[in-house]
């Protein structure tokens, strides 16, 4: 795997009050050459993150000493380190809230290590790319040139309407990350339309008809039910890496 060749090992900070969970997370990340630091409470987690900023934070939502949202806010006050939240099912509203507060992604318990690693890689890649301002983003056969505002599929230029392009642009800027319905509605239609989910559904379908090989089974523009959409680098990467499993 490509991670083996990288000289500098990246640091992941695991904040979870369950020691068993921390144990397998440590093993899983260390097998992938991450340096792992861990703690069971939020206060210590924030302290560790301040002391020596990690490359990635894995944050459990059920911490005894602090609300997960507060931890995200606290970290976001001074750092844009990728944060992946571990949540439980049926808490879509909570997920949306955390994403809006600045969490990068969430994984629902119980989860497999491969899933978390895919999300972690996507978050790290995004973080590396962002400052350099790389203008062209490739997602499978899709290529989005953010500088020239050109979208092409398998090298053929796609004609997008302004709203379709705006939608794709917002998703591309956050490639691999879940973007909430509210955020997309605000970015594309303005803050007066954050509840018009219908608009979004219709535009998403139109965009998929242009960018997806099979629009009824999308692989590029993935749905996160009740939360939002994601330009799915992780999904396509995972498919490319299947031989490993």
């Amino acid at each position: 795997m490509s991670t083996m060749t990288k000289p500098a090992s990246r640091t992941v900070l695991v904040i979870d009050d369950e020691p068993q969970i921390r144990r397998f997370l440590r093993a899983g990340f260390e097998l992938e050459d991450f340096t792992v630091r861990e703690t069971g409470n939020a206060a210590e987690g924030i302290r560790l993150a301040t002391l020596k900023p990690p490359d990635l934070v894995i944050l459990d939502l059920g911490l005894p000493d602090m609300d997960g949202a507060d931890v995200v806010e606290c970290l976001r006050a001074w750092s844009n380190v990728p944060i992946i939240v571990l949540s439980v099912r049926s808490e879509e509203d909570e997920k949306v809230r955390l994403l809006e507060l600045g969490a990068d992604d969430y994984v629902v318990k119980p989860f497999g290590m491969a899933e978390l690693l895919a999300r972690a890689r996507a978050a790290l890649r995004r973080n590396v790319r962002a400052p350099s301002g790389e203008p062209v983003v490739n997602v499978g056969p899709l290529s989005v040139d953010l500088a020239a505002r050109i979208v092409s599929l398998d090298g053929n230029r796609l004609p997008l309407t302004p709203k379709e392009y705006r939608l794709l642009q917002v998703l591309t800027l956050n490639a691999g990350k879940v973007v909430t319905h509210q955020h997309l509605l605000k970015e594309v239609w303005g803050s007066g339309h954050v509840h018009n989910t219908q608009y979004l559904r219709i535009l998403i379908r139109k965009l998929r008809q242009k960018i997806e090989p099979d629009p009824t089974q999308p692989r590029i523009l993935a749905t996160e039910l009740g939360v939002g959409y994601r330009l799915s680098q992780a999904g396509l990467d995972a498919e490319a890496q299947v031989p490993a499993a």
Partner: peptide, 22 residues
């Protein structure tokens, strides 16, 4: 029940991905 299960599941997935096992 679910916390230990989440650990079992996670640990199993780590083992499944470890080079010695694959």
């Amino acid at each position: 029940l679910r916390t230990p299960l989440a650990s079992i599941l996670g640990a199993a997935s780590v083992i499944a991905g470890a080079p010695a096992v694959t």
